[in-house]
Design a binder for these strands. Structure first.
Lengths: 147, 147
DNA sequence: ATGTGTGCAAACGGTTTGCACACGG
DNA sequence: CCGTGTGCAAACCGTTTGCACACAT
């Protein structure tokens, strides 16, 4: 559960040159400890449940600052690209698959995206940065229930 | 330019079971004839420039209906996933690369996404549907200007 | 003490919707 | 004529921002 001691997160914030506030610590802690893909709203709800006092605006401001410091990373899931979802950026590169039916989000890794980047660099001369890839469909459980 | 006669588009709408109105024809024509990646706003502007009378709300409603009929397809570009951009769905599967610096959008095709889908189907048992992939970075022109 | 973070509420941009009217079939 | 499409304005949702106050350094 609490593999991240407050002091560890606190140090990470300090090292990133950020001021440490209870709100920032709590938002960072929630994102760091969660296995889910939390939206700003989700985080705000969790903050309140844990008796925190960060407003929704502060959650957004904190996420912006943490993102710029490279501590958390936003992702888009499935076809629904309306909201951003956050994960600690310490996670290795991975992508997301969303099941249409049960809504579950699965993570997977692949080297094919890097292969694609390499090829495009050679063929087109582009410098490739961030790659966003979201897949959707039916997970194995839902597939059988549908058939 | 006008490789799509009004009557062809009209027939496509009819075959999709849609009522034909001047607004629908014009929106469909604009998306079909454009090589760009038009947002709803872009389309609305073009409608007015061509003396059409579709309101922005109607553009949105029309895009929804055309999408459901499988006549146009929405895409997300670059990291900016806030807006949808539309293309005729008759175009073969392709993906987009956006240059950070000049903002230009480049299209490319690749079989690697299908390879990935096949692998995930085998490894995870998922049924893969639509794949969204947007790349970003520097195009070859901007790369050299930066260096 | 100074400058940065915060809460609140209002603004924002892209999109959707309720309503009364217009028009396609 | 009936049912669906339309314009308008208001609502919506996720996100940002202006302001006065609170707090970290």
């Amino acid at each position: 559960m609490s593999e991240y001691m407050p002091s560890v997160l606190e140090r990470e914030l300090r090292e990133a040159g950020l001021r440490v506030t209870s709100q920032r610590l709590q938002v960072f802690k929630i994102v760091s400890e969660s296995d889910a893909h939390l939206s700003a709203e989700d985080i705000h709800v969790l903050v309140r449940e844990q008796d925190g006092d960060a407003s929704l605006a502060t959650v957004y401001r904190t996420l912006k600052v943490l993102r710029e410091a490279g501590l958390v990373a936003p992702h888009y899931l499935g076809k629904d690209h309306e909201k951003e979802h956050f994960e600690p950026s310490s996670k290795p590169e991975h992508f997301h698959f969303t099941c249409h039916r049960c809504g579950q989000v699965f993570e997977f890794e692949t080297e094919l995206v890097n292969a694609l980047k390499t090829r495009l660099r050679k063929d087109k001369g582009w410098v490739l940065g961030h790659a966003c890839m979201c897949l959707e469909g039916l997970c194995s459980d839902c597939k059988t229930m549908y058939a």
